[in-house]
Amino acid sequence: MTQILEAKDISKIYPSGEDTVTALNHLSLSFEAGKITAIVGPSGSGKSTLLNLLAGFDRPSSGSVKHQSTDITTMPETLLATYRLAHFGFIFQNYNLISILNAQENVEMPLSLAGVPRAKRSATAIEILKRVGLAKRSTHYPNQLSGGEQQRVAIARALATNPSVLFADEPTGNLDTSTGKGILELLTEPMEGSQHRTLILITHDMEVAARADTIVRIRDGALEA
């Protein structure tokens, strides 16, 4: 299988008063294209820090993260933003939709940032909203949608630019069991041509982790043996 994302010997050390806190300690990890990887571990184990580094939200104190052989840790901020836009999609635990935009406009946002013309991005957004079952709710604002619907919009937004890697941080964490199941099915359903998207998800829930091809366990900033 093709390796799509690789973290090599990454560490993340935060200052804490006069001391420092090591959130990740010389961790190396790789992800295969088209596979679902679940990162599990107790609170404070470094899961979110790992995802921050893999997604390019933050830079490691040492080590590197490569996406398709491109080192994203040394990229200037402007280039990194463009890179994230083109290659990565994000789903957050608390949806993080933009409150002043309706469902369709939220989905169009990354396309708009990418400079896609209005008509094309509108058509793409409507198509994706159909796929997540929210075509009829496209003009609703986040505060008019339920938690499950907001997460579906967030998934649609993450899929809008057709990213090669999808990051999801506790995507079902704020949802009831049945809604969470629906969201999970949506995330893990095969792409066109029966090919899976590379999905890296963080979860506490072992039922969610069980759907992954690979489970990575982290404790105290390092891979659990």
Partner: peptide, 16 residues
């Protein structure tokens, strides 16, 4: 602040 963080996370440049 959070909203700007989201916009930046999904790919907006600081200049945007």
């Amino acid at each position: 602040t959070k909203e700007f963080g989201v916009i930046r996370a999904i790919g907006a440049k600081p200049s945007f």
